[in-house]
Nucleic acid binder design. Structure first.
Lengths: 335, 335
DNA sequence: CTGTTAGCGCCTTCAT
DNA sequence: ATGAAGGCGCTAACAG
């Protein structure tokens, strides 16, 4: 009930406030009889301790914060699913902040977390270029764990995937099935994932001695813009015969642009990309995807964060965890 | 910085703690000069007031809670996107809780919010059958706004869609294009959305004098189960010639089951359903969907919640807001 | 305009 | 095994 506090319970039970507090928290120094009486009354009133008072007193919030660029993105919503599961098991609360790929917003949001609102931070950054807000977390002793989109310069645990390897494998297979001009589609902004995935792409080209044929298109995050860029790419004189998308949205955009231009996938253009769309197999044609274990990434990152929060030592391998992605080869890349 | 508090600032500035507090909050009774001095030092230290202390003192948390069944569901992630936007504008924080379609978990989570952790609650319920936890919110004077999945018996504002109408229109159009046996696919559990959508379905059948041909399949939330049920439905002696799915997942399941059984959509089976999949048009064949304005629902629900939190009177029409969905008729229903 | 004082509700010594 | 007292950091009421 709303107006119930320890004082009220104590008065009604003829006990001291401190006794009630201890009884409710199962302190060993309270008699079983008293505990029972206290708990009965607390139950009757549906009493919940005021979280602000106990957070203030104990200097901990039992809350973690999750900062992500987007939520309308299967990768992040699956990751949040995993995070929330672990948090709920631990009795923690989860604050969510969306930065909409805006690094100014990210900085503001993270600054807001500095004074005890959260006991830890899980973040997939918007840009890796500038990070005073993340350094502030270290000074404030707010534990951070990065997932997926990391900042190399900040010394915090990270949970990522073998994205370079998968990008390499995918592009190699495209080359081996006869593609000659693969365009790499990525997002603007200095992102760890873009760099790693491009590295894999370039490695595949290099291995075949085709590095000079590399094409990278940096697409704007704005919705219409990327489609304009793709349209231009696909109507140019030297049209690519394949695209490899670093992020889901660009693979989807490619499908839409091809439909608009009358280009056939895979006959005119092979399409593959990183994506956690569970329905990729229902596409026309089914879309070849690199699937990241988003749910596991969330669980793993949250698990590590809790170890930091609880002051436990991380095992040597836990500072950087690399989870395996897998390639779903489908008809969009069948030549 | 971590160890910065009002006391420290006050000491360094030779001011009273209360003066510092007021200066930082731009109280009109503080001189411009003092404000400037105070703010300069606060900035230097990157000072943020301890949120627990001010929440405790002011009896408000500047936080809202969002309780949803799932997040790996485009409807909910789009809605959360809208909610978060409004909350960020208002300077509020957003707590997320997932119930995984488990009403026990929903009850526990909502009970946890009773003592000031959040100033308001946005909820899409897991089941409409039992709701002591929601009544507790009213007693605790915790404002609630329902969105999408509502409980009729609880007197709280709600933001929903014209789902009965759209279900009716979709099914009517299926009938008019020649479907004779439309199966209605829904989820187990007593959900407002299931009832309303079924009402629309039944109304369409009734209007054509075909009510006796109605088939409703209540699918289990467990993943494999629903596909088993669909397989059974589609291999029976009187196979339906169309399915209308009350929720996205069942439309997707139908595609998968058809693929497995070698049934062709739409030739052997028309498929339509409620869905916020942005890629429905890329399906093979493109999926006919009833699209709900999920983002707007989130924004609208959050807006109303803030009016309640701020103690403003709701306009007459705001107690129940019905937003329009729209039907995207595509090839999955082309006979 | 600024300072003093008194809590918000809880938890934690320190006493008994 | 229980109680009394103090304080977490902040804000609001009341003085001056």
């Amino acid at each position: 009930m709303a107006g119930t506090d320890l004082k009220k319970l104590a008065r009604e039970l003829n006990l001291a406030v401190s006794t009630v507090s201890r009884a409710l928290r199962d302190s060993h120094e309270i008699s079983a009889a008293t505990k029972a009486r206290v708990k009965a009354l607390a139950d009757k009133y549906g009493f919940r301790p005021n979280p602000h008072a106990s957070s203030l007193r104990q200097a901990k919030s039992r809350t973690i914060a999750v900062v992500v660029p987007e939520i309308r993105n299967n990768f992040f919503s699956q990751a949040i699913n995993g995070i929330e599961l672990v948090a709920q098991e631990k009795g923690y609360h989860v604050l969510i902040y969306l930065t909409h790929e805006n690094s100014k917003q990210e900085r503001e949001v993270v600054q807001l977390l500095q004074n005890g609102r959260a006991d830890g931070l899980l973040i997939s950054v918007t840009e890796a270029g500038s990070y005073p807000h993340l350094e502030a977390c270290r000074e404030a002793e707010l534990p951070i764990v990065f997932f997926d989109r990391v900042v190399d310069e900040i010394d915090a645990p990270r949970v990522i995937t073998d994205e370079k390897l998968l990008a390499y494998q995918t592009c190699r297979r495209l080359l081996e099935s006869g593609c000659r001009r693969i365009a790499f589609l990525t997002m603007t902004g200095n992102l760890s994932i873009s760099r790693h995935r491009q590295d894999g792409y370039l490695q595949a080209l290099k291995e075949k001695g085709m590095e000079h044929l590399s094409i990278t298109v940096e697409c704007s995050a704005a919705d219409g813009d990327s489609r304009e860029q793709l349209k231009k790419l696909l109507s140019g004189p030297q049209r690519p015969d394949a695209v490899f998308a670093a992020v889901e949205k660009l693979a989807v955009d490619t499908y839409e642009v091809c439909a608009g231009m009358g280009l056939k996938i895979p006959e005119d253009l092979c399409v593959a990309g990183f994506s956690n769309l569970t329905v990729a197999s229902l596409f026309n044609p089914p879309l070849t995807t690199v699937v990241q274990p988003a749910y596991e990434i969330g669980k793993e990152a949250a698990g590590i964060l809790f170890r930091l929060i609880e002051g436990k030592k991380l095992l040597p391998g836990e500072h950087k965890i690399v989870l395996p992605s897998h390639l779903e080869w489908r008809r969009s890349t069948a030549r």
